[in-house]
């Protein structure tokens, strides 16, 4: 029996080193795979048309060879046609639209979420648990079920009109339907529930109103969660694709994702200008990455918590 314990220390060490090498190799290869699309996107955006169509492709380029013409070309004004006078890729217009939509939606979502989470966490009322269960149930429903009816609703509300849609109409159509999130309510309710009941009773005894208690006690205590919700929610507008495309009647009302796809392919020749396409992709990706690196800890903590608790 005891002989199974007799250890060959050298063999063990060699095995350990080998497995460590494998481990790092695995992690580094995964990291490179994750980074490759970013690298390829940036590298391609810095190539000239000739370089981009070189076979085999260039994998490394000295900084001195980098060209920013793809970027500057994006802002060259279109000479003729429907979009005459606009930049080829109206990045700043799309950016502005996206940021405005993101801010309005986030404010709206935060307000409805905080109020509802408070009601579900602190107030006793008839039907609370059933209502909450129903809300959770809606998370299972794919959004595609809503979209066409919502389009008709928006149409009926007068926010969609091919001939005379205003910027305000578009903003309303893009934001109002998205000002609720059951998931965030669930998430914030958990945080609210952890705040001890005693605080609430103490406040009641002092004659504090519910609303004041929410503002002065609950929100400050739950602020980290609320900030996480704000950050996560404001990233949403960047990926929104189908609804903004559906609802905006004019090119200048679209959001970044929409502007991106479809542009850069010459409809008459079918040729795609990959350099410009990649430059535009970089521009669209950059704001998100900047936001991420500014709030890295909060975003990662928020996302991981949302994953674990759900």
């Amino acid at each position: 029996m005891a002989d199974i314990y007799v250890s060959n220390v050298k063999a063990y060490k060699a095995k350990k080193i080998a497995s460590n090498v494998l481990l790092y190799a695995f992690l580094v290869i995964v990291a490179l795979t994750i980074l490759l699309p970013f690298y390829w996107m940036i590298l391609s955006s810095l190539k000239s048309t000739v370089q981009i169509e070189q076979v085999p492709p260039i994998l490394l380029m000295a900084p001195s060879d980098w060209k920013i013409t793809n970027y500057t070309d994006l802002f060259v004004l279109v000479q003729s046609g429907q979009r005459a006078g606009e930049p080829l890729f109206p990045f700043f217009t799309y950016m502005k639209n996206t940021v405005v939509v993101s801010i309005i939606t986030t404010i709206g979502t935060t307000i409805t979420t905080v109020l509802a989470a408070f009601a579900f966490a602190r107030l006793n009322f008839k039907g609370r648990d059933i209502l909450f269960a129903i809300l959770l149930g809606t998370m299972m429903v794919p959004g595609e079920i809503f979209i066409l009816t919502n389009f008709v609703t928006v149409y009926r509300l007068g926010w969609y009109s091919i001939s005379n849609q205003t910027y305000l109409d578009v903003l309303l159509a893009m934001t109002i339907p998205f000002m609720t999130s059951v998931f965030y309510i669930f998430y914030l309710r958990q945080t609210f529930k952890q705040i001890p009941n005693e605080l609430y009773y103490a406040a009641k005894v002092d004659g504090t109103t519910d609303f004041k208690y929410l503002l002065k006690v609950m929100i400050p205590i739950a602020l980290p969660t609320i900030i996480t919700i704000i950050i996560l929610n404001s990233m949403g507008a960047w990926s929104a694709y189908i609804w903004p495309a559906l609802i905006s009647c004019k090119d200048e009302y679209r959001l970044v994702s929409n502007g991106l796809r479809g542009a850069f392919t010459d409809t008459s020749t079918g040729r795609t200008d990959y350099g410009q396409q990649m430059a535009a992709s970089v521009l669209v990706t950059l704001p998100l990455l900047i936001l991420f690196f500014a709030f890295r800890k909060q975003i990662m903590r928020g996302v991981s918590r949302s994953g674990i608790k759900g």
Binding site: Y5, S7, V9, Y12, K13
Partner: peptide, 8 residues
């Protein structure tokens, strides 16, 4: 140098 699993 012996790992726990080999110490018996």
């Amino acid at each position: 140098e012996t790992p726990p699993e080999k110490r018996g």
